[in-house]
Nucleic acid binder design. Structure first.
Length: 796
DNA sequence: GCGGACTGCTTACCT
DNA sequence: ACAGGTAAGCAGTCCGCG
């Protein structure tokens, strides 16, 4: 379940769970990397090389000639074995001028897992022998199973004293810690003269809270400790408070305190022998890939967005008063704290199966799987598959190579401009996994590009950009994708027969979800400059094939007499007015017959009515903005302001209502009336301030902006009035009446907003949002006014 | 000096 | 720190007019 390198033992330490009990075992594994020498005669020199690790000098343990696939060709290389993992980078540096070196920067624990085909969290069959009082592994292998690991899971959360806004762990004490698991939820605190009763355990001091919490982890044999943002807040905080109070609070199984380190751009925190699962990371990931679209990523927002549940909030600026004055506010704070732990546990329950699966598929630990970016996940999977195929992985690029790769972007997907209007009888087709299926069908891979074996005419796949891809030997990436897609489809088939609430269904759902993430990320990483398998020609060929396939659909659709209204990348909107649905089905079938085996054009749905709008201030239609209603009355909306968090709720809700009325009833007059009502409410100051909030994420430090946009203006104003606003924050602001001419001068953080500027919300929010739609249907401001009553829209 | 048109910066969306 | 294609607002600048 946990894998570490132990320098003292010169071995991997495994944490295994046997009959519910955790045990340690040690396993020897050789660190190594590869050298493809320019001149085989350098062997004698290599043997003489010595490096120093700060304590003593080492020579290479062994130099072993091995046959591996390198850049698509069988190649003779040397496997250079070192005495311990820390020597790998040192020897790499010492030998690289003898040729090309490979696989020298793969983390040793990952190297161990890959080489032994082990999957953390999966069942293993293992044999030991006893030596020096320790268990030494003599054989180990993973047993394939979809079952979730039998971890003991606990969620915890802390409340802190925060007299100056943000709490400072060097100074401000912990007030309470709450925890929750499947059977209970409790709060440990030291608020005298509270008694221990119900779910509250009262102890003597902050130090005792920390020690009791550590004791809970021991008693419950916690394997997975869940937090919400524990990487940067809860765990570093309890660590610092443990040091400050000299508490004997060792949260790790090895009696260590949590340790923070840098992973990419952010801090992560781990604890010995237990897995720290930070739910925030997973919520962030789910939101990033579009599974949810939360405007803010607070635990409360996640609780509502992911689970559809809600709970009472407790304002952060009232914690100090509640603690100092006791009474009902303190009781509320304690209950809030308990519910936070419960919500964290429930969110973890939801997210864990997804990341168990992602870890299993990519062979990474739960800790890593829940923190890796999609690029790192794909890399992990490919490293595993490359090893299994006897292929050496390409190196990570140097800074210069990254710069070179970044220089020229490639041409992407094709998007057809729609003609604005209301359309009836649309059928939407979609290529199923377009880019992955192109990669498989045309064997697109860095190692199959310009192979030596398919030089003749008709011997290679030739992409629309003229790149040649091998037809004889399947590349690593197409092979990986083929396995991923076929496994995913098989799982989806299996799922159909299962009860959606069953554990088996949820496990399978997690697995197919993980496979989808990996399939969907693969094209992107081909063009990601830091990716090991980056190859511009591959990415370029994928999109070029993509454009070709969708253009074929357009051409064939028009030939068959459909109005091909709109296409974007892999989807096509066909209007079949005057034709039957059967002709649509027949068309799909005909197209599919001419596609490669791995590709498929699917009928997504029939839509009785759809709305496409015009581009602002132009005659042409807007791409990536449409709304459709299907035969079951389900509405699908894309791209409109109402799906964007940087538009106010009042504008979004009004636009949504207009679209719904038009799609369901086609009643422009009713829509116009609704708009008029909203405008009057705005004018009369009746709209709640929270409906006027606009959310915008700051993506750099405030000082680095060239332009003072409204969100930047709001932060500058707040700081001027003494508020501490963190950098790179999600800004929630309202446009008020006072402050100046420019919008940015009137922008106020919602906490500081006193009023809203009705003119702004009418003219810059609601009207543009709804006129975009009504205007595209041939109505202007005036013609809408005619449909209203005399009070009308003239007053705008 | 003025107002409208245009450009650039920026964000968040779609596939 | 997976890609490119796209719309759009607001600030800031350019440009013609005179």
């Amino acid at each position: 379940m946990d894998v570490n390198y132990m320098h003292a033992q010169r071995a991997i330490r495994l944490l295994l769970k046997v009959d519910g009990k955790s045990i340690r075992a040690y396993h020897k594994h050789e660190p190594y990397f590869y050298l493809k020498a320019n001149d085989p005669a350098c062997l004698e020199q290599l043997k003489k090389i010595q490096v120093n690790d700060g304590e003593k000098n080492y020579a290479l343990e062994r130099i072993e000639p091995v046959q591996r696939m390198l850049e698509g060709k069988p190649t003779q290389v040397w496997k250079l074995v070192t005495a311990h993992p820390g020597l790998v980078p040192k020897f790499q540096d010492a030998v690289r001028h003898y040729g090309a070196t490979y696989e020298y920067n793969i983390l040793f624990t990952r190297r161990y897992l890959i080489d032994n085909h082990l999957t953390p969290g999966a069942q293993v069959e293992v044999e030991f022998e006893r030596r020096n009082g320790k268990r030494w592994v003599t054989s180990i292998h993973s047993v394939a199973t979809d079952a979730n690991p039998p971890y003991n899971i606990l969620a915890f959360d802390i409340e802190t004293y925060n007299p100056s806004g943000m709490p400072d762990p060097k100074r401000d004490p912990l007030l309470m810690a709450s925890y929750a698991d499947a059977s209970e939820s409790r709060v440990i605190t030291y608020a005298q003269p509270l008694r221990t009763e119900g779910f509250v355990q009262n102890v003597a001091s902050e130090k005792d809270v920390l020690q009791r919490l550590a004791q809970v982890l021991r008693e419950k044999h916690t394997d997975v400790l869940c937090t919400y943002n524990g990487d940067v807040f809860d765990l570093p905080y309890v660590t610092e408070r443990s040091l400050q109070t000299k508490a004997d609070a060792h949260f790790g199984r090895d009696h260590s305190l949590p340790k923070s380190k840098r992973l990419g751009l952010r801090n992560v925190t781990s604890l010995g022998g237990r897995i720290h699962f930070d739910v925030y990371n997973t919520v962030y990931f789910l939101n990033y890939i579009g599974a949810t679209k939360l405007a803010r990523m607070t635990q409360l927002a996640a609780y509502e967005g992911l689970l559809g549940k809600t709970k009472a909030d407790f304002p952060k600026d009232q914690i100090v008063a509640a603690w100092d004055k006791k009474g009902q506010p303190l009781t509320d704070l304690i209950e809030y704290s308990r519910q936070d732990a419960v919500a964290c546990y429930e969110l973890a329950e939801y997210c864990l199966p997804l990341f168990y699966a992602l870890g299993k598929v990519t062979g990474t630990t739960l800790f890593d799987a829940s923190r890796f970016t999609s690029g790192q996940l794909v890399e992990a999977l490919l490293l595993k598959k490359a090893f299994d195929r006897g292929e050496i992985a390409p190196n990570k690029p140097t800074a210069e190579e990254v710069a070179e790769r970044t220089a020229e972007p490639i041409q992407g997907a094709y998007v057809k401009t729609p003609l604005p209007g209301v359309y009836e009888n649309l059928a939407v087709f979609d290529f199923k996994s377009l880019y992955p299926s192109i990669i498989i069908s045309h064997n697109i891979d860095p190692s199959t590009l310009d192979c030596d074996c398919c030089r003749g005419e008709g011997e290679a796949h030739i992409s629309p950009t003229g790149q040649r891809f091998c037809k004889k030997r399947q590349g690593l990436i197409p092979a990986m994708l083929q396995e991923v897609l076929t496994t995913r489809f098989a799982i989806q088939k299996q799922m159909k027969a299962l009860d959606k609430e069953s554990a088996e269904y949820k496990q399978l759902y997690g697995k197919q979800w993980a496979l989808k993430i990996l399939a969907n990320s693969t094209y992107g990483v081909l063009l990601y400059p830091r990716f090991r398998w980056f190859r511009r020609e591959c990415g370029e060929s994928v999109t070029a094939y993509g454009r070709k396939y969708i253009q074929d659909v357009i051409q064939k659709g028009e030939q068959a007499g459909f109005n091909v209204l709109y296409t974007d990348t892999d989807s096509a909107f066909l209007q079949y007015n005057g034709k039957t649905k059967q002709t649509v089905l027949d068309f799909g079938k005909a197209v599919n017959e001419q596609l490669p085996e791995s590709m498929q054009l699917e009928l997504e749905d029939f839509y009785p009515r759809s709305i496409f709008v015009g581009k602002k201030a132009e005659e042409t239609g807007a791409k990536k903005k449409y709304a459709s209603i299907n035969e079951q009355g389900k509405i699908k909306i894309r791209g409109f302001e109402l799906v964007r968090r940087d538009w106010s709720k009042v504008a979004r809700n009004t636009q949504r209502s207009v679209l719904e009325i038009l799609l369901k009833e086609g009643d422009v007059k009713k829509a116009a009336e609704l708009v008029r009502t909203t405008l009057n409410e705005l004018k009369d100051g009746k709209v709640p301030l929270e409906d006027c909030v606009i959310y915008t994420q700051l993506k750099k430090k405030v000082a680095n902006y060239e332009i003072k946009s409204p969100e930047v203006g709001a932060v500058l104003h707040a700081r001027k009035s003494g508020m501490n606003v963190p950098e790179n924050s999600m800004v929630a602001y309202v446009i008020g009446k006072a402050g100046g001419e420019a919008v940015s001068e009137r922008a106020r953080l919602v906490e500081l907003a006193k009023d809203y500027d009705a003119d702004y919300y009418i003219n810059n929010q609601v009207l543009p949002a709804v006129l975009k739609i009504l205007g595209s249907l041939g109505y202007d401001k005036d013609s809408i006014r005619l449909k209203g009553t005399q009070k009308g829209l003239g007053d705008w």
